[in-house]
Measured scan of single mutants.
Amino acid sequence: TKVFYNGTYVEFNNPEKAKKYAEKVAKKVGGTFTEKNGQFHVE
């Protein structure tokens, strides 16, 4: 499961961990995250 952010991504074996990371990054940058095709995108 990949989490895309700012033109790069971090890959996780565990979708649950990926979601938590996406939430954390989104919170940090004051943005939101969306799930597309089983991957997370932070905006």
Rank of each mutant, 00 (worst) to 15 (best):
T1N: 09
Y21D: 04
K20Y: 09
Y5G: 02
K20C: 15
F40L: 08
V3N: 02
A26M: 03
Y9P: 03
E43L: 13
F12M: 03
G7N: 09
K20F: 07
K27S: 10
F12S: 01
V10E: 06
V25Y: 06
A22R: 00
Y9N: 04
K36G: 06
F4Y: 13
T1E: 02
Q39D: 15
N13G: 11
Y21I: 05
N6M: 11
V3S: 01
F12Y: 04
K27I: 10
Y9V: 13
T1C: 14
T8W: 14
F4E: 04
K17V: 13
T34V: 14
N13S: 14
N13F: 10
H41P: 01
K36V: 14
E43A: 10
F33G: 02
K27D: 08
V29E: 06
V3Y: 00
K28T: 12
H41I: 14
K19N: 04
P15Q: 11
K2S: 04
G31K: 04
T32Q: 09
K19I: 07
K2R: 11
A26Q: 02
P15V: 13
T34A: 08
E35L: 05
A18L: 01
K36I: 15
F40K: 01
V3H: 01
T1G: 03
K19M: 08
E43W: 13
Y5E: 04
K27W: 06
K36A: 09
Y9E: 07
H41V: 13
K20A: 14
E16A: 11
Y9F: 12
T8E: 10
A22N: 00
E16L: 09
A26I: 04
T1Q: 05
E16K: 10
K19S: 05
G38M: 04
N37E: 11
E23H: 07
Q39F: 08
K28G: 09
V42D: 01
T1D: 02
E11V: 12
N14D: 15
K24E: 15
V29F: 10
F12C: 13
T8M: 12
F33V: 15
V10F: 09
Y21F: 14
F40R: 00
K36P: 01
K19R: 14
E35N: 04
G7F: 05
E23G: 05
K27Q: 12
V29H: 09
Y5V: 09
E11N: 08
V3R: 00
P15S: 11
V10I: 12
E43M: 13
T34N: 08
F33H: 04
K19E: 08
N6S: 07
F40E: 02
A26E: 02
E11R: 07
K2T: 05
G7K: 05
E11K: 09
E16N: 09
A22Y: 03
P15I: 13
F4H: 08
G38A: 05
T1P: 07
E35H: 05
F4R: 03
G38Q: 05
A22M: 03
T34Q: 09
K27M: 12
G31S: 07
K17Q: 15
A18S: 01
K20W: 10
N6H: 12
F12A: 01
N13I: 11
K36Q: 11
V29L: 12
K24G: 11
T34D: 06
H41G: 02
G30C: 14
F12L: 04
T8D: 09
K24L: 14
F12R: 00
E43V: 14
E35W: 07
V29M: 11
Y5C: 15
K19L: 11
H41T: 09
A22H: 00
V29R: 05
K28N: 10
A26C: 12
T32E: 07
K17H: 13
T1A: 09
K27T: 09
N37M: 08
N6K: 11
N6R: 10
A26S: 08
P15K: 14
G30I: 03
A22E: 03
G31D: 02
G38K: 05
T32I: 12
T1F: 14
F4V: 06
E35Q: 07
E23A: 10
H41S: 07
A22D: 02
T32V: 12
N37A: 07
N14F: 05
Q39T: 08
N13Y: 10
P15Y: 15
N14T: 13
N14C: 13
K36T: 09
F40G: 00
K28I: 14
K28P: 00
Y9K: 03
N37F: 08
V10Y: 10
T1K: 06
K19A: 08
Y5T: 03
K36Y: 11
T8H: 13
E16Y: 06
N6T: 03
V3C: 05
Y5L: 08
E16T: 11
G38N: 07
K27R: 12
Y21L: 05
E16G: 09
K28S: 13
F40C: 02
E35A: 03
K28C: 15
G7D: 08
K27E: 11
V10G: 02
F33C: 13
G31V: 05
N37P: 02
G30K: 09
E11P: 04
N14K: 07
K20T: 08
T1H: 13
K17N: 13
E43R: 10
Q39P: 00
F40A: 01
K20H: 11
K17I: 13
V3W: 00
F4W: 15
K20V: 10
K2P: 04
V42L: 04
K2F: 08
Y21S: 03
F12G: 01
F12W: 02
V25L: 15
E16D: 12
N14P: 01
A26L: 02
K20R: 13
E16F: 06
G31I: 02
T1V: 13
N6E: 11
A22S: 02
G30F: 05
V29Y: 09
A18C: 08
E43K: 10
V29Q: 07
K17P: 06
K2V: 07
K2A: 06
A18N: 02
K27C: 14
K28V: 11
F12T: 01
K28D: 12
K36L: 12
V25Q: 08
V3E: 02
A26R: 02
N37Y: 07
E35S: 04
Y5F: 14
G30V: 02
N6F: 09
T8A: 12
Y5I: 10
